[in-house]
Amino acid sequence: MKIVVFGASGGTGRETVRQGLAAGHHVTAVVRRTDALQAQSDLQIAVVPDLNDVRLVQEAMDGCDAVVSTLGTNARGPVTVCTDGVRSILLAMNRTGVRRLVVVSAHGAAESNDGSFYARSLRAMLGDKMRDKDEMEKLIRSSDVDWTIVRPPALTKKPHTGRYHAGTDLKIRLTSKISRADLADFLLREATAPAHTHQAPRIAV
C-alpha cells in the first residue's frame, strides 16, 4: 500500500514510517524541514513547511491509499497544529479522492472527556493541546472520509511488542500506557485493514 504519514519526524511518526517500510509499504513521510529524516529505499519525503498550504499537502498524498496523522507539538500556550493540519488533510483528501484516514488524538479529548480523574488531570496539565485535539476531532467527525480516531494514554519509548488492547470501551486509568512503537503498529493495522471505521478506539497495554 501507499501510505502518507503526517508528523513523520516525531516519535510516533518515525515508528510508523519504520514499521510501514519494514512491512513492505511505500511510505511518504511529510515533514517540515528537509533534514528531518534520512532518505531510505521506498521512502518518499515530502517537505511541507506550513500545513495550511493545502496545495503541498495535496501533492504529498496524491496517489496514496491511506493517510496517517501523528501530528503534535511540544509548544506551550494555545496551539492549533492538529486542527490546522487535519483541516488541510481533509481538504486534500476530498480533492484527491483518498478515503482512509487514521489520526492520533488522546484519551480525554472530545466526548472521552468524561469527568474521570484521568481526564481532569490530563486537561489540567495539557489544556491547550487537548483543546486543539477537541477541535481536530470535530472536523474529522463532520467529514465524509473513512476515519478512525485513536486515543492513547501516556506514551513510552518501550520497544514494539504487538501485545496491547484496543477498543471503544477500553478502560483507561492513570497508570495506563502504550509504547509509541505499539501505537504505530495499531495505526498501520487500521490504515491497511480497517476494523474501527468511524470509531474512536482507545489503546493500552
Rank of each mutant, 00 (worst) to 15 (best):
37 L>K: 02
150 V>K: 09
50 D>P: 01
26 H>W: 12
40 Q>V: 11
131 R>T: 08
197 T>C: 07
200 A>K: 07
58 Q>V: 00
128 D>K: 04
95 R>V: 12
129 K>R: 14
203 I>M: 06
93 M>L: 06
142 S>W: 10
125 M>A: 15
57 V>G: 06
194 P>Q: 08
16 T>D: 06
92 A>M: 06
105 S>F: 01
24 G>Q: 09
129 K>Y: 15
155 L>R: 07
13 G>I: 05
175 T>Q: 12
173 R>E: 15
35 D>P: 02
71 L>M: 13
122 L>K: 14
185 D>A: 09
57 V>M: 11
152 P>G: 06
190 E>Q: 13
82 C>P: 06
74 N>L: 11
23 A>F: 08
123 R>K: 08
4 V>G: 01
133 K>C: 06
179 S>W: 03
93 M>G: 05
51 L>C: 07
92 A>R: 06
133 K>S: 04
40 Q>G: 04
157 K>C: 05
33 R>Y: 08
72 G>S: 15
182 D>Y: 02
20 G>E: 02
114 D>L: 03
129 K>C: 00
110 A>H: 12
193 A>F: 12
87 R>P: 02
148 T>K: 07
114 D>K: 05
97 G>S: 05
54 V>K: 04
185 D>F: 05
147 W>T: 00
114 D>I: 11
55 R>N: 15
120 R>V: 10
79 V>I: 13
132 D>Y: 09
42 D>S: 15
108 G>I: 04
103 V>L: 07
64 C>D: 01
107 H>S: 14
104 V>Q: 09
75 A>H: 09
119 A>Q: 03
191 A>Q: 04
159 P>A: 09
188 L>P: 03
76 R>Y: 11
131 R>V: 10
134 D>P: 00
106 A>C: 12
178 I>V: 12
42 D>W: 09
126 L>Q: 10
96 T>G: 01
81 V>Q: 02
142 S>G: 12
12 T>I: 14
127 G>Q: 10
200 A>N: 10
111 E>K: 07
121 S>C: 04
145 V>D: 06
173 R>S: 14
37 L>R: 01
5 V>W: 05
167 G>K: 03
45 I>M: 07
